[in-house]
């Protein structure tokens, strides 16, 4: 069971947003969909949920045609940056409609979450701040109980307390009954320990799709004096180097050679997801 995207391309005028993207979202996994601004993450999620149509390529949901198929699409919920609910609608009415369209929607759980987050059920959606709009959509996403939940910039405008509460509730929900979560976010450090698989998109193409462990085990960091680091990285596959005064930290792909002569006085560490992402996606 999975969502499969095959050779998806999409252009907006002269801009080619997606260039033959193929990716798979397996069941009961937490994915991090990472990419810089304009990389094509939101476009990909919008195509996956039928909000826009690809120029070419196919979307398959649990071996069924994904586009324009109620049965396939009812397994997916996308929380997007754009709010598609009418401005005049109140939060409790939005919950009512979610219940009409998603039989698994747990209204009492949603109301409980709203209370926890301090979201008034009688508030009009148009009157909500950016943060509370995100909270409103997150509550819907956590309460619909579908196999695939896609979250595009889920913590946009949320303060630290609300972000922590959201991550906690997401993990609780996932532990209780696993489902597929796709987190598209720029706050990589916050989700680094949450995600199991990573998909990195760069300029409309999938750069990497692998488990977080695999991705991070493929490299390491080496730090020390600039001369020692420069000597050590000679002939190695270096993603990038950070410099601070006379110190250097290099991001290197491969296995650390701690016993080599050039490794003396150097410190080795695991690859950091955010650093790796920055190095991989730097122009």
């Amino acid at each position: 069971m999975s969502i499969e995207l095959a050779n998806i391309t999409k252009s907006f005028g002269q801009v080619q947003a997606l260039k033959g993207v193929s990716a798979v979202f397996h069941e009961e996994r937490i994915y991090g969909l990472l990419g810089r601004n304009g990389a094509g993450k939101s476009t990909l999620l919008n195509i996956l949920t039928g909000r826009i149509f690809p120029d070419s390529g196919t979307v398959t949901v649990d071996n069924e045609r994904g586009t324009e198929n109620d049965s396939a699409q009812s397994k997916i919920f996308l929380m997007s940056e754009t709010t598609l609910h009418p401005d005049f609608m109140r939060v409790n009415k939005a919950f009512h409609w979610a219940g009409m369209f998603y039989p698994g929607f747990d209204e009492s759980y949603a109301k409980g979450l709203a209370q926890e987050f301090g979201l008034s059920l009688k508030a009009k959606i148009s009157g909500l701040s950016t943060g509370y709009r995100s909270i409103f959509k997150l509550i819907l996403a956590l309460s619909v109980n579908v196999p695939y939940v896609l979250l595009d910039e889920p913590v946009l405008g949320l303060d630290a307390n609300h972000r922590e509460l959201f991550y906690r509730r997401l993990l609780e929900k996932y532990t209780e009954k696993p489902f597929t979560v796709v987190l598209s976010t720029h706050l990589i450090e916050e989700v680094a320990n949450l995600i199991e698989d990573v998909i990195i998109i760069k300029e409309g193409k999938v750069l990497r799709q692998e488990s977080r462990e695999e991705l991070l085990s493929g490299g390491y960091t080496v730090s020390g004096g600039s001369a020692a680091v420069e000597t050590y990285i000679q002939g190695k596959n270096v993603l990038g180097i950070d410099a601070l005064g006379g110190l250097r930290t290099a991001y290197v792909l491969g296995v650390p050679e701690k016993d080599s002569q050039s490794a003396m006085d150097l410190e080795f560490g695991p690859m950091d997801l955010q650093k790796l992402f920055i190095q991989l996606t730097n122009s």
């Binding site: 949920t49 324009e68 109620d70 699409q73 997916i76 598609l84 009418p86 409609w97 979610a98």
Partner: peptide, 14 residues
């Protein structure tokens, strides 16, 4: 309004 809300709730255009 109804088109957007329907799309949000995964309702096909058909």
């Amino acid at each position: 309004d109804s088109f957007f809300l329907s799309i949000q709730h995964s309702v096909s255009r058909r």
